[in-house]
Amino acid sequence: MSTPERILFVCLGNICRSPAAEGVVRALAPGLELDSCGTGGWHVGEAPYGPMQAAAQARGYDLSRLRARQFSVSDFSLFDLILCMDGQNLADVEVLRPEGAHVPVRLFTDYAPEAGADAVPDPYYTRDFDGALDLIEVCARGLLAKA
């Protein structure tokens, strides 16, 4: 199986988990077309959350140019794979799936079964930015190993 060339990462507000996933995968595989978004629109236009940016920067990932946006039905035609950070994000995306859209929508943690996690916990609430990044890095390596 080859790695899809156009991947969208989805979380709730697009200020922590999904931009971090975009930044990590971009660093590991710069040739891919990547984006991130949130199921909610509260933070549209905002940069990633400061503590997440700081934790990512400490590992060499620059998230500063990313800006939050909300998931759109058009994303089903723009991406080859949509990866959600938790089951609620996945359910919220699937509700919007238009008839005839066949793009796979999966949990990002599906690519890291060894981690034993069914979601990337939201560090906006848990405050565990390094723990979220640890899991995101494992998932990213698993995703790219599928190539």
Rank of each mutant, 00 (worst) to 15 (best):
R6L: 04
A147N: 08
I7H: 04
V105W: 01
L96T: 10
A27G: 12
I136F: 04
L135N: 10
N89W: 09
H43K: 14
A101Q: 02
H102Y: 11
L135G: 11
A101L: 08
Q53F: 02
D118W: 14
P121Q: 09
F71T: 04
V24M: 01
C84W: 11
R141F: 10
V24F: 04
P121H: 11
G23E: 04
S74P: 00
P4A: 05
I82G: 07
A68I: 10
D86E: 13
A55E: 06
C84D: 04
G60F: 10
A55V: 09
A119F: 14
P51Y: 06
A91Y: 08
D122N: 13
S74F: 15
E33H: 13
R97N: 06
H43T: 08
R69C: 09
A68M: 13
C84S: 11
A58H: 13
D80I: 00
A147R: 08
P123Y: 01
Y124S: 00
A115V: 00
R69N: 11
C139R: 07
V95L: 13
C84T: 10
P4M: 05
L144M: 05
A58T: 08
F79W: 09
G31D: 11
A68F: 12
R26M: 06
A132M: 06
L90V: 07
R69L: 12
G60M: 12
S72G: 13
L66V: 01
D130E: 14
R6P: 14
L107P: 11
D128C: 12
F71D: 00
N89M: 06
C16M: 02
K146M: 14
D134E: 09
D134Y: 09
I15Y: 14
C84K: 08
R17A: 04
T109E: 01
A112M: 02
K146S: 15
M1T: 07
L78A: 15
A56Y: 02
F71Y: 10
G87H: 15
G13W: 02
R6Y: 02
L32R: 00
I15W: 13
H43F: 12
L135S: 11
Q53I: 10
A140V: 01
G87V: 09
D75F: 07
A27Y: 05
R6K: 13
F108I: 00
L8D: 02
P121V: 03
L32P: 13
A101V: 00
C16H: 05
L144F: 05
Q88D: 14
A119H: 14
D75G: 01
R59F: 09
M1V: 06
A91G: 03
V25L: 04
G116D: 02
T126L: 01
P113S: 09
D62G: 08
A140L: 05
C139I: 03
V93N: 08
A21G: 05
R69Q: 14
A132V: 04
R17H: 04
G100T: 06
D134I: 05
Q70G: 08
C11V: 07
P113N: 11
L12E: 03
W42I: 02
E5S: 13
L34I: 02
D62M: 07
R106N: 08
A27C: 13
P98G: 14
H102T: 12
L135F: 13
Y61D: 03
E22G: 01
K146Q: 15
A117I: 01
C84Y: 08
N89S: 11
Q57L: 15
P98S: 10
